[in-house]
Computed example of a mutant assay.
Amino acid sequence: MSITTELFDLTGKVALVTGGATGIGKAIAKVFIEHGCKVVVGSRTLANVEQAAQELNTILEHSDEIPMAAGVSLDVADDDSVQKAVDFAIDTFGSLDILVNSAGIMCKKPTADLSADEMNNLYNIHVTGSLRASQAAAHIFREQHAGCIINIASVASYCSLTEVTAYASAKSATMGLTRSLANEWAKYGIRTNGIAPGFVPTDINRKMIEGTDRGRRIIENTPMARFGTSDEIAGAAVYLASRAGQFVNGHTIVVDGGYLACGIGDTFAPWAQPSEA
Rank of each mutant, 00 (worst) to 15 (best):
Met1Ala: 13
Met1Cys: 09
Ile3Val: 11
Thr5Lys: 14
Leu7Thr: 08
Phe8Ala: 10
Phe8Gln: 06
Asp9Cys: 12
Asp9Glu: 10
Thr11Glu: 12
Gly19Glu: 04
Thr22Ile: 08
Thr22His: 13
Lys26Val: 02
Lys30Trp: 00
Phe32Asp: 00
Gly36Leu: 08
Val40Asn: 09
Val40Met: 09
Gly42Ala: 09
Ser43Phe: 02
Val49Ser: 05
Ala52Phe: 00
Ala53Lys: 09
Leu56Pro: 00
Asn57Glu: 09
Leu60Tyr: 01
Leu60Glu: 12
Leu60Arg: 14
Glu61Ala: 15
His62Ser: 14
Glu65Cys: 05
Asp75Val: 08
Asp78Glu: 12
Gln83Asn: 13
Lys84Ser: 13
Ala85Trp: 03
Ala85Tyr: 04
Ile90Asp: 04
Phe93Pro: 04
Asp97Gln: 06
Asn101Trp: 07
Ser102Asn: 13
Ala103Phe: 07
Asp113Thr: 12
Asp113Gly: 02
Asp117Gly: 01
Glu118Lys: 08
Glu118Phe: 04
Ile125Phe: 02
Val127Trp: 06
Leu131Val: 11
Gln135Phe: 06
Ile140Tyr: 02
Glu143Tyr: 03
Ala153Leu: 05
Val155Ile: 15
Ser157Glu: 05
Tyr158Val: 02
Tyr158Ile: 01
Thr165Cys: 11
Ala168Ser: 15
Gly176Pro: 04
Thr178Asp: 01
Ser180His: 09
Ala182Glu: 01
Asn183Glu: 09
Asn183Arg: 12
Tyr188Ala: 13
Arg191Gln: 07
Gly194Phe: 01
Ile195Lys: 07
Phe199Gly: 07
Asn205Met: 06
Arg206Ala: 15
Ile218Phe: 06
Glu220Thr: 07
Glu220Gln: 15
Ala225Glu: 14
Ala225Cys: 11
Phe227Asp: 06
Gly228His: 08
Thr229Trp: 06
Ser230Gly: 15
Ala234Thr: 01
Gly235Arg: 14
Arg243Ile: 09
Gln246Asn: 14
Phe247His: 10
His251Ile: 12
Thr252Tyr: 02
Phe268Arg: 11
Trp271Ser: 10
Ala272Ile: 00
Gln273Pro: 03
Gln273Leu: 14
Ser275Met: 08
